[in-house]
Simulated assay, not measured.
Amino acid sequence: MTTRTIPSQQLLRERRPADLYRVPLRARLADPAFNTMTIAILLVAIAAVAYPLYFIVIASVSDPNQIYEGKVWFLPAGFTLEGYQRIFADPAIWRGLGNSVLYTVMGSIISVGSILGAGYALSRKDLPGRKFIMLLFIITMFFDGGLISRYLVVRDLGLLNTMWAVILPGAIGVWNLIIARSFFEHSIPDELREAAQLDGASDFQFFFRMVLPLSKPLIMLMLMIHVVGNWNSFFDALIYLNDDTKYPLQLVLRNILIQSDVAASGNLSGDVESYAAAQRVAELTKYAMIVISSLPLMIALPFMQKHFTKGALIGAVKS
């Protein structure tokens, strides 16, 4: 009598699905419980981030007295656009908006162009002294001359009270340079450059025609970082600019807020109604200014998010 060997696949077909996929009750409940808990935590985190932004928006069109009384939670109370009307009636706002757009565009172009060029050069193994040059960049991450030394350098270069005083001192971030160098090292193979050289392409032609088109995630990452940084920057303008016609929007809004607070504080010695009116204006302009300064980035950044994530992972994981 001979025994017949059943192939493993046939044996699997003959067994009942319940025998194959019989899982203990605890294991079957583990995944749904984990998923439910994860979703709940994520919803709480989203609410914790989104609700303050939503509250700022509804508070900017609500009566400050209603806000103080705790009547503003999910819908505006005492709807008013007075805060926006007061802000946009000020010509300094429009001038500051134009300055911010100029500083952001020029600063981002200069910063991204410099980082891409320097990062690609430092990624080339045939660059003489590239390790020493990279060491000089890294040293600046740990040692800083301080604000006074930077101010003296900007002054001696004749950049005070100019657009370049806001753009050039912080044009290149060493951390971003490291990300760019790592991206080029691991994403642009040497064989591709050798093939381009055999076809007669120079280094500049290879960089502009082949490297840059393959580096769109990195370019979008750098653009996003520098657009956000340049748009929100006001400290350099506060230090290096003396002409208020050259102030960026963030600095203009800061000055308006300070003036509103000072006006409200100056009415402490007067009647209560004047102080309450001044405080009301200060609160209206405060919420409206937050919305105005944040809205452009909130509109633009979602369209760049996927490129930001991809570029950050490529530049960071492989570094």
Rank of each mutant, 00 (worst) to 15 (best):
K306E: 13
H307V: 10
K310Q: 11
Q305D: 12
N255P: 01
A288V: 03
P302E: 11
T309S: 09
A263E: 09
K310I: 00
Y287V: 06
A288L: 01
L253Q: 03
I299N: 04
I256H: 07
K306Y: 12
I314V: 15
A276R: 05
V272S: 09
P302F: 11
R280V: 05
A312H: 07
F303Q: 14
A278K: 04
L253E: 11
L297P: 11
N267P: 04
M289E: 08
R280F: 09
R280T: 10
I299F: 07
A300V: 05
F303M: 14
A277S: 01
L253C: 05
P302N: 12
I290G: 15
P302W: 09
S293L: 06
S265W: 02
A300T: 02
A300K: 06
S274L: 04
T285V: 06
A282W: 13
L257N: 05
Q305R: 14
Q279F: 06
F303I: 14
F303W: 13
E283M: 12
A263N: 10
I290P: 13
L297Y: 09
N267A: 00
N267W: 07
Y275W: 11
E273Y: 02
N267Q: 08
T309R: 08
I299C: 04
L257Q: 07
E273P: 06
M289L: 04
G266S: 02
G266V: 00
V281P: 00
S260N: 14
K286L: 12
A278F: 00
I258A: 01
A282E: 13
S260R: 05
A312F: 09
M304A: 11
Q279I: 06
L284H: 13
P302S: 13
S260Y: 04
H307M: 14
V291H: 15
S293N: 14
V281A: 04
I258F: 07
R280D: 05
I314P: 11
L301E: 12
S260C: 04
H307A: 15
A312S: 01
